[in-house]
Design a protein around this nucleic acid. Sequence first.
DNA 1: CCTGTTATGCCAGTGACTGACATATAGACG
DNA 2: CGTCTATATGTCAGTCACTGGCATAACAGG
Lengths: 177, 177
Amino acid sequence: MFRERGYDATTTAEIAARAGVTERTFFRHFPDKREALFDGEEAFRDALTDAVAGAPEGLPPMDALLCAFRSVEPLLERNRPFTEPRQEIIARTPALQERVLTKTANLIGALAAALVRRGVDDGLATLAAQVGMAALGYAAKAWFDDPRPGLDTHLRRAFETLQHFSPTICKPDPHVG
Amino acid sequence: MFRERGYDATTTAEIAARAGVTERTFFRHFPDKREALFDGEEAFRDALTDAVAGAPEGLPPMDALLCAFRSVEPLLERNRPFTEPRQEIIARTPALQERVLTKTANLIGALAAALVRRGVDDGLATLAAQVGMAALGYAAKAWFDDPRPGLDTHLRRAFETLQHFSPTICKPDPHVG
DNA sequence: CCTGTTATGCCAGTGACTGACATATAGACG
DNA sequence: CGTCTATATGTCAGTCACTGGCATAACAGG
């Protein structure tokens, strides 16, 4: 429905009417107009955190994350027909992009918490979750562009890329005006 | 002013009245109620992107970022009295946290663009900027807790930590139900 | 049949934000 | 000094997301 009129031009009253209910009822189901677009997202989060929790014991944080990411490929594949048109709407709506960021931040928080439960230090877990999510985003983007090698392969490449990232420490003093 | 009544309980009309203008005028200065809190943030962004642009030629992306981060320590130090009470308000207001995320995302985008201008690949630049910002956040947090060693030292530690992050590739198949 | 719980409708209101129009203030130019 | 233009502000009316309060229907369990 957002696809036709656009997100901003679609009022909550119209959404409710289309659903056959009152505007008030709409807000009893969704705390927010934006939230109507992000549904079943907890399933993805739970799948990831469960996978982190279920990763082989003793595995370092980044490897646990990689395991978790690999495990949700079928879930991502299955949700593709829903997420793809959604992306279109989000791309045109700054307010929705903002919400995506908080969703991602929540996901990062959940992953970090799952890592902490594995015994990882708090700050370290957050850092790992952030870097991991960045890698996942990088791999997912490449995967959408070219799904043939599988998400697994793209993930491996992303994490390998990370390894080449923080080598020489910048010795000279900063050059800034 | 937000400190007294809280952000949500402070109406834009009150803010405008306190400033001696009309509510309408307030919205001519700030596109948004939230934006009133984030001012002079472009200065920080420009300082960072300029520093990235001014980093020694040929320096790999992550080192350029490290150089840039090191260079803004005095700026962060100077702004501390303003950012510290702001953090308090933001911590209590989800809507403001959401805005912080978009600000960070914009910053990441700007850093990535600066890297691209240095000849770095687009996707790679975004990944580097994300990882770099995560490291900066990690270092800044440690720096706020213990400013004595200087941001520089904390940054070095953060980037060293990153190096220990993506080692063994998770070989076995995912363990997920 | 009664009762408590839950989902919904209805109503009135608040507050962020916008568009349109009028007004003032300041500076450039004759 | 007078005029003219641009820019900042005031005023007004309106839209829309969102909320609290209350009444009502649907429904489950005793």
